[in-house]
């Protein structure tokens, strides 16, 4: 890494807003940890209904994972383009991020609807309650992130890439990357492990 890159990053990281937001993300991680623990404990409680191996479709979850990963990637590129004041390429990357986020959210909702219509709603068993809570919590975060992203896109289209916009975009990208990190564990612990055992 060149010295100039280091100073560039340094300047950003010393901002109190960035650190404060980072600490919020850390507390959010602990919230997710509680939901993960709840899910793992409740998983054996299938109440004569379907168990995790019966209903989870790993291929579907793999596509979800790749879509969210791609959106995390384009979000990083959008932030990079914004930092170098390339407004056209920024708009494209952020729009791509939001579209991929919407596709992901749509897939989550589709899966929920499919389970509920088949009679495997959250009220059926402890296992399904835990599943809907954990994945639903993640979906709520994604929804909030998409709303935030749309507002940012509108703001920047109108006001341009000023200092405020860059700071907000920096916080948004941290939030979005964090959601992808949480999803890695949902994919591994809920979907992949659900099929293993």
């Amino acid at each position: 890494m060149t010295k100039s890159t280091a100073t560039l990053m340094q300047k950003e990281h010393s901002s109190p807003a960035q650190l404060g937001f980072w600490l919020y993300i850390m507390s959010d991680l602990m919230l997710f940890a509680a939901f993960f623990a709840t899910y793992m404990i409740l998983r054996p409680g299938a109440n004569d209904g379907p168990s995790s191996g019966d209903i989870f479709d790993v291929n579907f979850a793999l596509v979800e994972t790749l879509v969210l990963l791609a959106s995390s990637f384009t979000c990083g590129l959008a932030y990079l383009a914004a930092k170098y004041k390339q407004k056209v390429s920024f708009t494209r990357w952020l729009a791509a991020t939001l579209v991929l986020g919407l596709v992901f959210l749509g897939m989550e909702i589709y899966e929920f609807a499919e389970f509920i219509l088949a009679g495997h709603g959250p009220d059926h068993s402890a296992f399904l309650s835990g599943f809907f809570s954990l994945v639903g919590l993640h979906g709520l975060h994604i929804t909030a992130g998409i709303i935030w992203g749309v507002v940012l896109l509108g703001y920047i289209t109108k006001r341009g890439l000023n200092k405020n916009a860059l700071r907000r975009l920096g916080l948004f990208s941290v939030f979005w990357h964090f959601l992808d990190v949480v999803w890695i564990f949902i994919f591994t612990i809920v979907y992949l492990m659900g099929v293993v055992s």
Binding site: M1, T5, A6, M9, Q10, H13, S14, S72, F73, G76, V174, H177, F178, D180, V181, I184
Partner: peptide, 13 residues
């Protein structure tokens, strides 16, 4: 890997 390459934790001062 994502904390390093996406969140730039390795470049923190």
């Amino acid at each position: 890997v994502q904390a390093w390459y996406f969140l730039h934790l390795d470049e923190e001062s």
